[in-house]
Write a protein that binds this DNA or RNA. Structure first.
Lengths: 126, 126
DNA sequence: AGAATACGAAACCTTTCGGTTTCATATGTT
DNA sequence: AACATATGAAACCGAAAGGTTTCGTATTCT
């Protein structure tokens, strides 16, 4: 049991605004589908499908209670996103540094900004 | 000039694996389209369209040099993603705390985990 | 000037996405 | 038992996504 057939990853899951709202709604409380769908301007079935996508990505857990199914957030998969993002974080700093250098020098002949950024650091990961 | 007609946001832009690879490729070096497309198993035009989506989201900047257009990463819009993610970060900790409590107590009648998580913290941030 | 290169726009195709409506089923209520 | 409630599955639909091929145009090279 390594990979339980993902079919939907975190990146896809959070791409849709409705699904991001869903995550936020379920962040601290568990809710059944009918209640959840009350917060959205679409059919219950549509909401249910969004919940399925989120569940596929592991961002939401379902629990059956009597005739209702309650959903709640599971933030774990967001770690992958965090890791992905972390890789790019240093480039904010680099960009600032490059800008600084550019402002301090006067070699702005029209193609400097890119050059300033070009060779700051090199890294090929994967 | 406030919002330049977004049309594609960061969340959509990074949803596609090809586009994530593009970002990584352009992270430290500037490249023209033809060279870029050499890294992908699809037509140059297809890559070009992906680059447009990234540019729409502001994740990539283009610069014309002679007959070629060079692209490079602009990590700025990732800040929005970082902010979004930061909101959920505390819940990793909360989840661990809830788990700890659950393990230490013995009220595991079958529906404890959800309850343990349910009331840890309450926050409604639009 | 003429040929080659770099690129985007446009038209087109197939698959996925986000949504709806309808139906079947399980559970709860009287 | 009969009815109501909660939900997912299925069939369907229009629009968007991701791709291709073809074409037009700007730039560079001989």
């Amino acid at each position: 049991m390594t990979a339980p057939a993902p079919k939907h990853d975190v990146f896809q899951a959070i791409a849709d605004p409705t699904r991001r709202k869903l995550l936020q709604l379920l962040v601290d409380r568990e809710m059944p589908v009918t209640v959840i769908s009350g917060y959205f301007p679409m059919s219950r079935t549509a909401v249910s499908k969004h919940l399925r996508v989120l569940a596929d990505a592991g961002l939401v857990k379902e629990r059956k209670v009597g005739r209702e199914t309650r959903y709640r957030l599971d933030p774990d998969p967001l770690l992958e996103l965090k890791r992905w993002l972390a890789y790019y974080e240093r480039f904010w700093e680099n960009k600032l540094m490059a800008l600084k250098h550019y402002v301090e020098s006067d070699e702005r002949d029209g193609d400097v900004p890119a050059g300033a950024l070009g060779a700051v650091e090199l890294q090929t990961k994967e």
